[in-house]
């Protein structure tokens, strides 16, 4: 775990320096209506997750109340205000996946990773989530790992999929 901890730069970097990248993006979107959600998508892409400080920064730059930005960030399930692992594993529990063994896949992943839905493994490698249909219903059950789909997943072969990632 100790290897994962990066030296904190908060003391040496100003907010402007830390959020330099996103402030450039915000400038690109300036004057465009309804740009909050695309900006949040990009911010999460850059920083991994949306801290209250980052949301505060975005709110100030967009001249919006923090409450509104926070309200939007917490409404949508793709946005996260806590750190995610290197790999976000989303187990599809759409109708077809639920019917054809999605629950078993989920149970196996919980067991193998030792975490519950919404949690991240202590080594910061995997985050487990549930997704409502990724549209591969004809070849269920499915999981998606960092936007790559794995179809007709056999619960007993989860280990192989996890190994193939690294």
């Amino acid at each position: 775990m100790s290897t994962m901890v990066k030296p904190c730069k908060c003391a040496t970097e100003t907010k402007e320096e830390l959020y330099y990248k996103i402030s450039e993006i915000i400038e690109d979107y300036r004057g465009k209506e309804g740009s909050l959600i695309p900006i949040l998508h990009i911010a999460q892409g850059i920083y991994g997750y949306l801290t209250p400080e980052l949301l505060q920064f975005i709110a100030e730059k967009l001249d919006m109340p923090f409450s509104k930005v926070y309200g939007v960030a917490t409404f949508y399930s793709y946005f996260t205000i806590t750190p995610r692992g290197e790999y976000t594993i989303r187990v599809c529990l759409g109708t077809s996946c639920y019917l054809q063994g999605g629950k078993k896949v989920l149970a196996q992943l919980k067991k193998q990773l030792g975490i519950e839905i919404g949690q991240t493994t202590p080594d910061g490698k995997y985050t487990l989530e549930v997704v409502r249909c990724i549209g591969e219903c004809g070849i269920a059950p499915n999981i998606s790992i960092n936007n790559t789909s794995f179809t007709q997943v056999d619960p007993d072969k989860i280990g192989e999929i996890l190994e193939s990632l690294s």
Binding site: E33, G34, S35, L36, I37, L40, H41, K68, G71, V72, F75, Y76, S77, Y78, F79, V131, R132
Partner: peptide, 20 residues
């Protein structure tokens, strides 16, 4: 951003406008 309700047309309008 992962909200089923946004398939409802007026919720989609809200979402494009950058709202919940």
């Amino acid at each position: 951003a992962g909200a089923f309700i946004c398939g409802e047309e007026t919720a989609m309008l809200q979402s494009i406008e950058g709202l919940r």
